[in-house]
């Protein structure tokens, strides 16, 4: 591996989650997801909508860090319109959960019991609505047995455990698309829609990934090496999307 950083490869791998998305709001929560959505928009998914985490739709990605120049404003999207848009299915979010489990449940809420958590995190935010209404992907920058777990402490979003699905509830819009970690790329097409290894980053191995995962991991028939960024992708990341190099510390 040479000529690019781990974070840059993760951004490229995460961008792939948005491939094939048409006119949907691509929301990357956190630095790598945000840069990934921007990279997808500038390359293979030009119809994506982006916003500024406040209430402005923009037609060009916003570089994180000190802002220079005007935003390329495309529209107005206050929070109540965000809810309408996401409940209508026209969104694809990528979050950075504190825990992600075998059947695709994520946790951004707390570690420990509800009455007295060991660690109180943000709260479920909009994840319940996101995961049951539109495509969702995840980025985990610190793949370990503490983050990729058998079962999350709190299911902030939906996943694929039949016991958690009440009869009559519509699951048709659930689309847990991709999980990208600092070690590999995964989908949820293993047995029983469990987490499945698709590709291994050049600096990792299947053995390491299994060792850092708290459950026996399914694997695709053929597991590839995650593709390295192209020269054009690196140019876009470095010169256009993240000129302030905030990604330098994205993997901790």
């Amino acid at each position: 591996m040479s000529g690019y950083t781990k974070a840059e490869l993760c951004i490229v791998a995460a961008a792939e989650a948005f491939r094939g998305d048409g006119e949907v709001l691509a929301s990357g929560m956190g630095l790598v997801p945000r840069l990934a959505a921007g990279l997808a928009k500038l390359t293979f998914s030009p119809d994506l909508l982006l916003n500024d985490a406040e209430c402005t739709l923009v037609s060009q990605p916003i570089s994180p860090g000190p802002r220079t120049g005007e935003l390329a404003v495309e529209g107005w999207l206050p929070f109540r319109k965000v809810f309408e848009l996401l409940w209508s299915g026209r969104r694809h979010t990528m979050n950075m959960p504190t825990q992600l489990d075998r059947l695709g449940y994520c946790n951004i809420s707390r570690i420990g019991p509800v009455a007295r958590p060991k660690t109180q995190l943000l709260g479920v935010r909009g994840i319940p609505g996101n995961t049951i209404n539109h495509p969702c992907s995840y980025f985990v920058p610190n793949h370990s047995r503490r983050t990729i777990v058998e079962r999350v402490d709190m299911a902030s979003g939906v996943g694929h455990d039949p016991e958690r699905w009440r009869p009559g509830v519509k699951k048709d819009f659930v689309d847990l698309r991709r999980a990208v970690t600092n070690l590999g790329v995964f989908d949820f097409e293993g047995p029983g829609q469990s987490m499945r290894l698709l590709s291994v980053h050049p600096w990792s191995s299947e053995e390491e990934i299994q060792k850092e995962t708290a459950f026996p991991l399914a694997r695709a028939d053929v597991v590839h090496e995650t593709p390295a960024p192209t020269a054009e992708q690196l140019r876009l990341i470095r010169d256009v999307l993240d000129p302030n190099d905030l990604r330098a510390t994205a993997l901790g």
């Binding site: 994840i127 049951i132 939906v158 958690r164 509830v169």
Partner: peptide, 9 residues
């Protein structure tokens, strides 16, 4: 609404 179904909520 659908939000909340199938989760710890």
């Amino acid at each position: 609404c659908r939000a909340g179904l199938g989760t710890s909520v």
